[in-house]
């Protein structure tokens, strides 16, 4: 047997190595398993978001092409009704005009809801026009003046990328309107090598509370961006204001 004297420290070293190999292998295996579960969860989450967006788009199209048209048609039919003679003619005409105005308002509401569900402008005019339109909308809906800056023309992207960036801008501006307590913000879209960067900034405002920071909106934005292999950063403090920066690869 051994031609060298037995030394116990050697056995200790090998025992340590043996435990290290097996424990390390087990920990490694658990990490791999967790990463796989996470990837599956993320993939499911991505599919769920995609399905939700498709459903929203279908409902918005149905509202726009079906319901709104019928309401508008009803308003036109009312306008074309011949004047009624008789003692109640004046009252009936007033009722008809009021009903027609009401129908017009209903059509506007449905159009607004349809637009909120899926911005059709994104499909027709592209991301840049959609972001500019979004900036305008916040002035009317939340009295927030948004300065939209596109340093150069944004490149063509897939509908997933465009929709993600649009939703990011929408959620970011909604956060500013609800939590920052300011009347001005800036929405900036910049083409970068391989992707598009969208920034939402406001200064001299209040810092959003924990509710806004940990709310579903920002988490949803981060999740959307991550699904497209993009980057997400959110910083907020009283000195520098709030800044949400998102970068998404155009081939995402």
């Amino acid at each position: 047997m051994p031609t060298e004297p037995f030394e116990y420290w050697r056995l200790l070293i090998t025992a340590g190595l043996a435990v290290l190999i097996l424990v390390g292998a087990f920990v490694g295996s658990v990490i791999i398993q967790q990463r796989r579960y996470l990837a599956i969860t993320r993939s499911l989450s991505g599919r769920l978001m995609l399905a939700q967006e498709r459903e929203r788009s279908a409902v918005a199209r149905e509202l726009h092409d079906g319901l709104i048209q019928r309401v508008v048609l009803l308003g036109s039919e009312l306008s074309r009704m011949p004047p009624v003679a008789g003692p109640d003619a004046h009252e009936l005409a007033a009722w008809r005009d009021s009903f027609r105005d009401e129908l017009h308002d209903v059509a506007d509401d449905i159009r607004r809801i349809a637009h909120g569900m899926h911005p059709s402008i994104l499909d027709t005019l592209g991301l840049q026009a959609a972001l500019a339109s979004l900036a305008d909308e916040f002035y009317f809906s939340d009295n927030l003046t948004v300065r939209f800056v596109a340093e150069s023309a944004l490149p063509d992207t897939s509908s997933d990328v465009a929709l993600t960036l649009y939703r990011v801008a929408q959620e970011g501006l909604r956060n500013v309107a609800r939590h920052a307590g300011v009347s001005k913000a800036e929405l900036r879209a910049t083409p970068t090598p391989g992707g598009i960067m969208v920034e939402i900034m406001n200064d001299l405002g209040t810092v959003p509370g924990a509710g806004a920071r940990n709310g579903f909106g920002l988490k949803s934005v981060a999740e959307r961006v991550r699904l497209l292999n993009g980057r997400f950063s959110f910083k907020s403090d009283a000195a520098t204001g709030t800044r949400l920066v998102v970068w998404v690869p155009t081939n995402g």
């Binding site: 051994p2 060298e4 090998t14 043996a18 435990v19 097996l22």
Partner: peptide, 17 residues
């Protein structure tokens, strides 16, 4: 000569398993 490290290591790893 006889293994001083890898032999005991093999034995310990397989014994644990």
């Amino acid at each position: 000569t006889f293994s001083q490290y890898t032999g005991p290591l093999q034995a310990l790893v397989l014994m644990l398993v």
